[in-house]
Nucleic acid binder design. Sequence first.
DNA 1: GTACGTGCAAATATTTTGCAGCAGT
DNA 2: ACTGCTGCAAAATATTTGCACGTAC
Lengths: 131, 131
Amino acid sequence: MTNRPRIHRMTKQRQMILEVLQNTKAHPTADWIYEQVRQAVPRISLGTVYRNLRVLKEMGDIQELNYGSTYSRFDGNPAPHYHFVCQDCGKVMDIDLPLLTDYDEQVAGTVGGQVDFHRMEFYGNCSDCLT
Amino acid sequence: MTNRPRIHRMTKQRQMILEVLQNTKAHPTADWIYEQVRQAVPRISLGTVYRNLRVLKEMGDIQELNYGSTYSRFDGNPAPHYHFVCQDCGKVMDIDLPLLTDYDEQVAGTVGGQVDFHRMEFYGNCSDCLT
DNA sequence: GTACGTGCAAATATTTTGCAGCAGT
DNA sequence: ACTGCTGCAAAATATTTGCACGTAC
């Protein structure tokens, strides 16, 4: 019994959440997204935001990040890329450097499994927090 | 007013938590550690486990990992190394490959900040979950 | 003896979910 | 019309914290 593929509808809420995420470089939290979308869709609920973030992630339109926090951040750019996290202010920035794709094969060899993708995060202090 | 450095005591609880963590390759959760330590120190509380994990992390004896989960995992090996995460069974394994330390400088250049360290996680299926 | 650590329980913080009505296709 | 989606509120999950007592140094 293979289950019929789920059909996704493009609601006003889902549309807005995706737009907000695609128009910021801030890698925001669910709550920040909620506050933004609320300005256009006042009666939206936080539960709806979470549900849509999960669906958008499953559809491959966004990605979820959780770097050393108790909460998740979301990225409107689904293409693999690395991140820099400032340990002082918590800011997350995109890193514009080529991916180390060759490493995946080596890792697959040492663990004896299959590697689909990898992630890399750099930690330190951003220029604003160096003084 | 610089505040006097905090002096850490080695209690039976802290000792046991560190030992449990150093004697497993499982990258366990706080709750798993709690259950293990409970066998030696029955009246220990989960709060104490969390408090000690934070202290041990601050002292640089262990590290905290949170890879796409709602909970943290802990690693008794404080030396930097990469991890492989099985997307099927959730297992976390150590990767025994050289660190890409040269990359830190390049990233520092592109973000205009200072890079202290980086992390890298590989995602895929472990040999047990390939069938 | 001092002050850090502990157990306990309650509080916080983040995310998920049941349900009845709404709405995209 | 069918079935996915929403708002609301309550529940679930993971972690933190206040307090009075205990204990390492």
